[in-house]
Design a protein around this nucleic acid. Structure first.
Lengths: 220, 220
DNA sequence: GTCTATAGACTGATAGAC
DNA sequence: GTCTATCAGTCTATAGAC
């Protein structure tokens, strides 16, 4: 029990401090001071600073991935094993955007921690993201069921672009806000999700193989 | 002259080492050893490690931004002051993608440095990126000329999504390659540019205000 | 088993001699 | 401008107290 409170105190303090000040500005000594525990406790419970960060990130990632997967399964079973492409894309990007955008996320340390993790790419987190591919494969498979006959390359590019738009919106929300001088409303999370889903599904349905107007205008 | 060779030696060595090993694994002592100069020379010539990195990044950024702007002006004067939206988007994302993707970039330290800068977001580089907004405003203005009557919010979202797809493709090329098992060809730089331009211009022409099928299917 | 205290090796930055 | 010497801060790792 004593061990668990120490462990939890470190996790809670670390998540809050990283959320507030970013990874670069927070030392282990800051964390143990905030948690009211000793410096060596970090090494004892987590092995290293990187493994502490990894545990924080893995916990939140698993939650998001489960949410994504539940939404996907719900959409597919509602459609008898096949969901419209819009629903698949919504299941892919909805949980991340709802977690990181909007008013509620202002208060949650977990949400702000995940935004930091999206912005400040540090080695322990990058390693975990690289193991995410198996999870994405399930969405590629669902997209194939939604769009039978669509070439695999198109599926992967569509998945990639959908994730790109969602992640960049989380990562660079400040740039978009300042560029648009507040015209683009990032607090309207459902509206943002709609936009990303609309663009990605439009691209997937139309096809962007280089036969479109862009390629033609390039060849002129 | 003697001062300039020391300064240049530091810049060259730093760019190569950061390109090869990333920002986290390279110390000032590594850099001065590779450059054959004294440790204190870095602080004398640049003030700090961060300012050295900033100078490297600013130099390359200015080159890219000039390339973007020249392409934009060429496209607009060819069309009598107004370019097709595809050409504007191509001027925006083409220089970055050509610089960071493809075969040629394998050899250039500058290209690999910029890829690192896109992946490992560190404070000195983030600060510079935040000052890039004035540059982007010129592209928003050109897009408005291409699509008269289009609401400003649509313009900004289209610009944001185009940049998102381009930057994420540079940043996460490895994930897309592994996910698609090589089916998505990232060495075909013009093909990638075509795809991003096609998706972004499609989104801008169609409109994604939440009246599309995505929003409708959400409201069901 | 759990934690404290401390050791030893790094880092970036700087004062001051030349 | 360049260099030596050194600072203060961080990290991992561990001996030994409880």
């Amino acid at each position: 029990m004593s061990t668990d409170t120490t462990r939890s105190a470190i996790l809670t303090a670390a998540e809050r401090l990283y959320a507030e000040r970013g990874f670069g500005d927070v030392t282990l000594r800051d964390i143990v001071a905030a948690a009211g525990v000793n410096l060596a406790a970090v090494n004892y419970h987590f092995g290293s600073k990187d493994e502490l960060i990894a545990e924080l990130f893995v916990t939140r990632s698993i939650a998001t991935n489960r949410e994504r997967f539940n939404e996907l399964k719900a959409a597919e079973s509602a459609g008898g094993g096949r969901a419209p492409i819009e629903a698949v894309l919504r299941a892919l990007i909805g949980p991340t955007l709802r977690g990181c955008l909007g008013q509620d996320s202002e208060r949650s340390d977990a949400a702000r921690f995940m935004i930091r993790a999206a912005i400040e790419t540090i080695p322990p987190i990058r390693k975990i993201k690289n193991r995410e591919i198996d999870h994405l494969r399930k969405f590629a498979a669902a997209m194939r069921r939604s769009l039978p006959g669509k070439p695999d390359a198109e599926i992967y590019w569509g998945l990639h672009f959908a994730l790109a738009m969602a992640q960049q919106t989380v990562r660079d929300s400040e740039r978009l806000l300042r560029l648009s001088e507040g015209i683009c409303d990032l607090d309207d999370v459902d509206g943002v999700i709609d936009r990303v889903v609309a663009v990605a599904s439009l691209a997937l349905k139309t096809g962007t193989t280089g036969t479109g107007e862009a390629a033609v205008s390039r060849r002129r």
